[in-house]
Amino acid sequence: MTDTPAFEPIVKIENLHKHFGALKVLNGIDEHISAGEVVVLIGPSGSGKSTFLRCLNLMEEPTYGKIYFDGNEITNRESWKKGGLDRVRQNMGMVFQHFNLFPHMSVMENITLAPMKVHSLSKKSAEEQAFDLLDQVGLTDKAHAHPAQLSGGQKQRIAIVRALAMEPKLLLFDEPTSALDPEMVGEVLQVMNNLAKRGMTMAVVTHEMRFAREVASRVLFMDEGIIVEEGSAQKLFSAPENPRTREFLAKVL
């Protein structure tokens, strides 16, 4: 680890392994994310980026290794009982490649569902909060639309708002622009850029090297289930040390 975190890390990962049967996807990851950081994960497909991200909010159960979030070990299975697992996720939002909006609900209902059902927020305050957030992504006019009526870029912006409505301490992005038509990528990256500027802590799996270059505080290059190289976007893109990093960047840049 070259960088010393400025603050106590919000996430600390120790020797994380994930196997799917005989397939070893993650092979020992030690990492940390500090509050306010934007960490971008890059790497070839099958390198384990998405699995790594999905282990953080325990969407995938780590095979072994430890993850600490906000000072607590969250990989301890005992702690998952009595809603412990849900409480972890209430503080760690996730944005998916395929948006996964709830198609039977309006945009407003998508956003207010979790605040109302988890935090028992009143409908009124949940909707006020939702309007504030919709305003930030320029979609207040879509509050009463249904997901089917939205473009891909709009859906993803709504999905981001839905995650933000829980006021997470960390936001995970799993290839948020990979399912979008090229002309819609910009509007989603813009929203993420704004979030980063406002100090949101984010971990982003993406193929958007420009985003990594412009927004990332740190870029991690993953291959074959380990973090091969990491550093500032500037350093990683201009002077990669590892031959695998160099090979990958030569293909994508």
């Binding site: 909010n57 969407m59 809603g83 849900d86 409480r87 972890v88 996720r89 209430q90 503080n91 939002g93 996730m94 998916f96 395929h98 996964n100 909006l101 709830f102 569902l113 979790a114 059902k117 988890v118 999905a159 839905r162 995650a163 829980m166």
Partner: peptide, 15 residues
């Protein structure tokens, strides 16, 4: 993805 999205927001399985 529907289950994953709901669970990622911290909703319990019954909810």
């Amino acid at each position: 993805g529907q289950t994953e999205a709901a669970r990622s927001l911290g909703l319990s399985w019954p909810k």
